[in-house]
Design a protein around this nucleic acid. Structure first.
Lengths: 221, 221
DNA sequence: AGAAGCCTCACTGTTTTCAGTGAGAGAGGT
DNA sequence: ACCTCTCTCACTGAAAACAGTGAGGCTTCT
């Protein structure tokens, strides 16, 4: 790990690329060599023999050829390009699909900041890397606890939950107490209690165990 | 990676610990601070505020609290201990279970020698590490080429539960309160509480939600 | 401009859970 | 006969969850 790791970033949101650059530039072992805003640009960039990168950070959703098509391009051309998917899409099917297409890492945008540097270093050195939430998704699908794709039973109900309520719901399944959640989320204990009560009401269950069971059944965790 | 990495090793076979020490001592960046022969010893060691280690090398099968229970201890106490599993057990379910419990690396004893130093360094610096064979197992199972294994990882733990404890565990997942359970089972409220407490202790979880989650993971319900 | 939804927090009071300890009765094995 | 395990129950005290109500600030849609 003495030499610099060269990275190329592809995402249709320029601001996100700038954010990634800011994070990565704090590490002297990594250098960003270029970026692309569409899948087509990525392919053009790598098609040019002069342009290479040890690691490609790739978004799934992009205009003019998406991430899948870029991966398929590499596969078709038998180019052994190391790719880390950076996606807000954390569906197990997506993850499996890109793994099959040969990508070596997958981190979700939620917590990209804390993972991206490690991910780049791991993948550059031949390892694989998945951020925690992605790992959880993979493991869940492994253990067959996934609701078979198709329609989920309570999709509508789940949709009525707000972001914060989901935060609390997830933490409850991890055995967090209200105080611990408040601490972690930087909220008042009263606020967290409010969310819990709201969840109990919305999901029509009796207690936190009911919330946890609901979360499991509906694949929240 | 200038400072020394302190390591604690836990395995019920002393000879194996000595072997690990021999391998690790060839690397000047790593120092073994202590070792344990049972899970209980591990917990005692880390429970002592003076004793810490950057990385814990942990065997799964040990007398008096196995590796799972050690991991659960850390989880319960919310101790962010970096753990590498060193196991001869290369079953997917085992691997995914320890990953769920927060362990950061997994190497099989078959080829521990060539991996252990790298694994320690990787995990110490916040990355994850899996030896080749473990990676293959994970990937194979991901792409559905794996025959699902029959036995559950926690069978041992589950087996330690008595009939009554199982009764209570099942009812907890159905959102029963203690009073309701006592009513249904024709028991005193105190008795039901005793079972709940026994469950909490045996399964090493913090609260009823933890019990419910355990039940789900192990197909009790 | 108004309505609706979300996020945030406070206050009060009740119920339940969690934790520790102790103990008697019965079943089963060594 | 002794030991261990299970089932059963009691008591106490602390911590957390549950329940109801109210309310201010913010954004978004109409």
């Amino acid at each position: 790990m003495k030499e610099k790791i060269y990275v190329h970033v592809a995402d249709d949101h320029k601001i996100l690329i700038e954010g990634i650059m800011a994070v990565i530039n704090t590490d002297k072992d990594i250098e960003i060599r270029g970026y692309s805003l569409t899948g087509q640009e990525v392919i053009d960039w790598f098609a040019n023999k002069k342009n290479t990168a040890d690691v490609l950070i790739l978004d799934i959703t992009m205009p003019i050829l998406d991430g899948f098509q870029v991966l398929k391009y590499f596969k078709k051309k038998k180019i052994d390009q190391k790719v880390i998917i950076l996606s807000s899409y954390d569906d197990v099917k997506i993850v499996q699909e890109v793994l099959n297409l040969g990508c070596k890492g997958y981190i979700s945008k939620n917590n990209a900041g804390e993972h991206i540097v490690n991910a780049i270093k791991a993948v550059a050195s031949g390892e694989q890397y998945f951020s925690n939430d992605i790992q959880n998704i993979l493991l869940k699908s492994l253990s067959g606890q996934m609701v078979p794709q198709g329609e989920m039973p309570d999709k509508f109900l789940l949709d009525t939950l707000t972001e914060r309520e989901l935060d609390v719901l997830k933490l409850i399944t991890k055995e967090y107490s209200t105080i611990e959640m408040a601490d972690l989320l930087n909220l008042s204990v009263n606020t967290v209690e409010t969310y819990r009560k709201s969840l109990l009401k919305k999901l029509n269950v009796k207690n936190s165990v009911g919330l946890a069971m609901y979360a499991v059944k509906n694949n929240v965790v």
